[in-house]
Amino acid sequence: MNWLLVVVGAAVGAPLRYLTDRAVQARHDSVFPWGTFVVNAAGSLVLGAVAGASVSSPAYALLGTGLCGALTTYSTFSYETLRLAERGRRFLAVANAAASVLVGLGSVFLGLELARALTA
């Protein structure tokens, strides 16, 4: 039954990723992939909160695996970083990779601590 919860979470996460990416990118006249950066940071924050709240296995399947799995996107991050490098924007490629990892880790730890503080 958990597989169905993953499907439901992903059915929300994937369109949310697409719409958020398009909305963020439309506001920035930049080659930097701000949309992907934002959805990955937000997804990391939510996943940290889900983990910190010590939710049940079904809730984790819905929110952690389904929602966050579809909301965040390592493949698009990798592709956009590669495209920046191929187009001669090596500084932006390195900045995207470094900032995405640092912000992602920071977001997951922040979500974890927020959830622990709120559930303690």
Rank of each mutant, 00 (worst) to 15 (best):
117 A>N: 10
105 L>H: 07
67 L>G: 01
35 G>S: 07
112 L>A: 03
114 L>A: 13
14 A>K: 15
4 L>K: 02
111 G>H: 04
104 G>I: 06
120 A>V: 11
62 L>K: 01
15 P>S: 08
120 A>P: 13
117 A>S: 14
84 L>T: 06
107 S>W: 07
73 T>E: 06
76 T>S: 13
108 V>I: 15
25 Q>F: 00
113 E>P: 00
47 L>V: 11
2 N>A: 10
4 L>T: 13
43 G>M: 05
108 V>K: 01
82 L>V: 14
48 G>I: 12
81 T>M: 11
36 T>Y: 03
55 V>A: 12
17 R>P: 05
86 E>W: 11
52 G>R: 01
116 R>Q: 13
76 T>L: 11
68 C>I: 10
66 G>M: 08
119 T>Q: 08
63 L>N: 04
66 G>A: 07
112 L>F: 08
98 A>K: 00
16 L>G: 00
115 A>Y: 05
80 E>D: 12
100 S>I: 01
19 L>P: 05
88 G>V: 08
34 W>Y: 14
37 F>A: 08
96 N>H: 15
6 V>I: 15
115 A>F: 03
64 G>W: 01
53 A>V: 03
53 A>Y: 09
32 F>A: 03
87 R>V: 00
79 Y>K: 14
14 A>V: 14
35 G>C: 06
77 F>I: 02
101 V>N: 07
28 H>Y: 13
64 G>E: 09
62 L>T: 08
103 V>C: 10
90 R>W: 12
46 V>I: 15
16 L>M: 14
40 N>A: 08
91 F>H: 08
47 L>A: 06
95 A>F: 09
88 G>W: 01
8 V>K: 03
82 L>I: 11
26 A>Y: 04
103 V>Q: 06
64 G>P: 08
36 T>C: 11
40 N>I: 07
95 A>H: 05
56 S>F: 02
101 V>T: 02
112 L>C: 06
76 T>A: 12
25 Q>E: 11
111 G>Q: 04
58 P>S: 04
95 A>V: 13
100 S>W: 05
58 P>R: 13
90 R>Q: 07
36 T>I: 13
52 G>A: 04
81 T>G: 14
71 L>H: 06
54 S>H: 14
113 E>S: 10
109 F>Q: 14
45 L>Y: 10
50 V>T: 03
118 L>F: 04
38 V>R: 10
115 A>R: 05
52 G>K: 00
75 S>H: 02
64 G>H: 04
81 T>I: 02
1 M>F: 10
87 R>T: 15
93 A>F: 12
42 A>V: 15
47 L>P: 07
17 R>Q: 11
70 A>F: 02
75 S>P: 00
28 H>F: 15
97 A>I: 02
80 E>C: 09
34 W>P: 03
89 R>D: 14
8 V>L: 15
18 Y>H: 15
55 V>G: 06
21 D>A: 13
65 T>N: 04
109 F>V: 12
